[in-house]
Design a protein around this nucleic acid. Structure first.
Lengths: 119, 119
DNA sequence: GCTTGACCTGGAGTCAACTCCATGTTTTAT
DNA sequence: ATAAAACATGGAGTTGACTCCAGGTCAAGC
């Protein structure tokens, strides 16, 4: 059981962002204390972390919502399955691009090191 | 030698976006014809593609600019080297997160398949 | 010589995703 | 019982990254 502040610390999302995500329908019904304060439980924290992951995969909040909704549905329509396959390809593709960036960084670092050694 | 339209097709960036990147200082001086039209050469195209890669790594345009500027400098200050190491960790971390998303997708797809087979 | 098409510029407009603010309630410490 | 802390709400404001638009230039074809 966590307060919103604790949830914020755990997820590294701001308190406002968490409330914003709730408003946007990305979270399930968050429990409240009698005084209206939100109470976050472990699965809520994990969900927030998954949202962060998906955002890093360049999904919009709407897309994140869609996938999380699908995750709840036990039977997926063929379109959903197709959509997920498609998205999987997109993510793979993006990982390849990230690898390009890593290579670029390594190359530059190697150059830097080389120059340093030479000097 | 490419027109802006060809560059747009090659990079899948809109013409406006390419001009925007130029204004933002992410491109080197682009050659012009006497009639002021831009002429893109191969390295320009590659640079645009690298920008796309870096953006997918969740770098802001300012950060992209910074790294591209560093790439030009032959000797990097220790802070730059440190910054790049740091960023490398960030990118790696992000790849791990993407992997999480991939796993999530695979899991959901597996479930869907399973349910379908059962039905 | 006039229209068409591809390009130019400067600047305004749009959109997603926050982020901030004013105001209000409830519990806790003095 | 007054003050301070931690939360709440609704809505306005901000930011980054485009995207669109009005008005203009230039070269080519009819």
């Amino acid at each position: 059981m966590y307060t919103i502040k604790q949830a914020s610390t755990l997820t590294k999302l701001s308190i406002d962002t968490i409330r914003y995500y709730e408003k946007a329908g990305l979270l399930p019904k968050i429990k409240r204390l009698p005084n209206k304060h939100r109470v976050f439980i472990q699965p809520d924290i994990e969900r927030l972390q998954m949202i962060t992951c998906m955002k890093k995969a360049n999904l919009s909040l709407d897309e994140v919502k869609l996938y999380l909704d699908i995750a709840k549905t036990s039977n997926m329509s063929p379109e959903m399955v197709a959509g997920m396959h498609q998205h999987k390809e997109k993510v793979k593709n993006q990982m390849a691009q990230l690898q390009t960036v890593l290579d670029f960084i390594d190359e530059k670092l190697a150059e830097g090191t080389w120059l340093k050694r030479k000097a």
